[in-house]
Design a protein around this nucleic acid. Structure first.
Lengths: 122, 122
DNA sequence: CCTAGTTACTTGCTTTATGCAAGTAACTAT
DNA sequence: ATAGTTACTTGCATAAAGCAAGTAACTAGG
């Protein structure tokens, strides 16, 4: 099994802590929203863009690239002429389900005015 | 119950999604490391600074302030002359335990070279 | 009293990341 | 031939992060 991803980064870690290293992959305001959308069944660039938070297009491209590098998602062409891509969660990506669930639960309990409008297949 | 915190922010939300709103509070590379330290029993400014990730001092001050504003932690003086403060998790903060646990588990399983060196009282 | 040390920050400045608008490539449909 | 759609990229302004140094309020030692 060749390693083309950034999965192994020993040496350039800020610490060996699993939380710190997870944050280096998903620790920002946008990444988990893309992953949420994937859990909600979305898979194309325009579907991600259509989410209510309106992710900037360059940031979306950047996050999709990073997630693919870390093997959390992968990109496959779903049609030719013109070629269009579908993004989907890898096994590693799907295993973020419990984290997403914990976050959604915390938000619903602790932040007034929040409401889950999409059904996630966690 | 008076509300001096930012707990209620209806109107300036980017969406009603609980995940999006949780990310607006803890979605960055540092906040959850401070919370991790609190779960590990740390409580002073210098203890947070001594963690292996070496959080910049101005960012630490900023995050402590924000977490207090959102009622995730609170600050109490533990001595006079000179006055020194201890930070501790509120009930709201302690309820982040499952989220932190899910994140630690994901990191341990999916990122090579990670290792939990602190015991968290989740 | 004077100097060094500690804790808990704040300030100034440089670098990096975010956010917005516009532009491009490769098509399809009329 | 022109307009529309999808999936991006590029340029530029603003905001946040990161680093080093400085400050305030003390304590302890010579």
């Amino acid at each position: 099994m060749k390693n083309k991803t950034k999965a192994i980064r020993i040496g350039d870690m800020r610490s060996p802590c699993p939380i710190a290293n997870t944050l280096d992959i998903i620790g920002d305001k946008w990444t988990l929203l893309v992953i949420r959308d994937l859990f909600a069944g979305k898979s194309t660039y325009s579907e991600f863009q259509s989410s209510p938070e309106s992710i900037p297009t360059n940031i979306l491209a950047n996050r999709l690239k990073r997630l693919a590098e870390y093997d959390v998602i992968h990109k496959t062409p779903y049609q030719q002429r013109p070629v269009r891509y579908a993004y989907q969660l890898t096994a590693k990506g799907r295993s973020l389900g419990p984290l997403l669930l914990a976050m959604a639960e915390w938000g619903k309990k602790n932040i007034a005015g929040t409401e889950a409008r999409m059904k996630l297949d966690l």
